[in-house]
Design a protein around this nucleic acid. Structure first.
Lengths: 108, 108
DNA sequence: CATATATATCGATGTCTGTCAATATGTCGT
DNA sequence: ACGACATATTGACAGACATCGATATATATG
């Protein structure tokens, strides 16, 4: 029987794939990727939840939930100042994901 | 009343966010990101389903389902040759996602 | 202390999706 | 034409998750 193709050699391990997938899953939500983009373009690099609910058209608990997801995944860090909690992007975290997506592509 | 912070200016639109999120969602699965990485490192740049089920430890229908997802999202293209269907990465499609993740980051 | 404001947590719910078994379709050999 | 093999499709199901209302916690102000 003729072989189908040369057997698979490289590629991510199961564990590596799980890690990368869970990173991407955090960003793969319209609300969250939008929050990230808003943080990236915010004048002082930080925003509070109260300014996010309106543009996102989401309830406060939902936004708070997304913030927690982003924080636990290391994409943002949060600091309480008075009544408000300010959130900002963690430097280089996004670039880290971009690098992880730089899989060796065949030379076309 | 003191303002919380300067109002949100930029950021992705709702529609842009949906598009980017749906792109990322396709990659945000352990099996699919692994398939992509395997295609990226495959010797001839292509593999068939039959060689994927074993390393992924998934059933043939499941792998076929993931292939369809990847194809419809433009990450792979597939060509039937005899009994087999060979899949390969679409050039630059992954890089396109990386670029979309290159949001303007604050200068730290 | 009481009230108002900002955020977090909890519980419930509806939707989405990854998975498989069963089956269908397509292709090659004999 | 028939059987063997590779892939695709369908239907069903279980688990994950985005969302919200209600409620709790924290902080400032009067």
């Amino acid at each position: 029987m003729e072989m189908c193709c040369t057997p698979i050699a490289g590629g991510l391990s199961g564990e590596e794939a799980e890690d990368l997938a869970s990173m991407l899953k955090i960003l793969a939500d319209p609300a969250r990727i939008r929050i990230v983009s808003m943080l990236a373009t915010a004048v002082d690099g930080e925003v509070c939840v109260c300014d996010l609910t309106a543009p996102l058209e989401l309830s406060q608990p939902t936004v708070s939930h997304h913030m927690k997801q982003l924080r636990e995944a290391g994409f943002i860090e949060s600091e309480r100042r008075g009544k408000w909690v300010f959130h900002r992007l963690v430097p280089d975290r996004l670039a880290q994901v971009r690098r992880a997506l730089s899989l060796p592509e065949p030379a076309f």
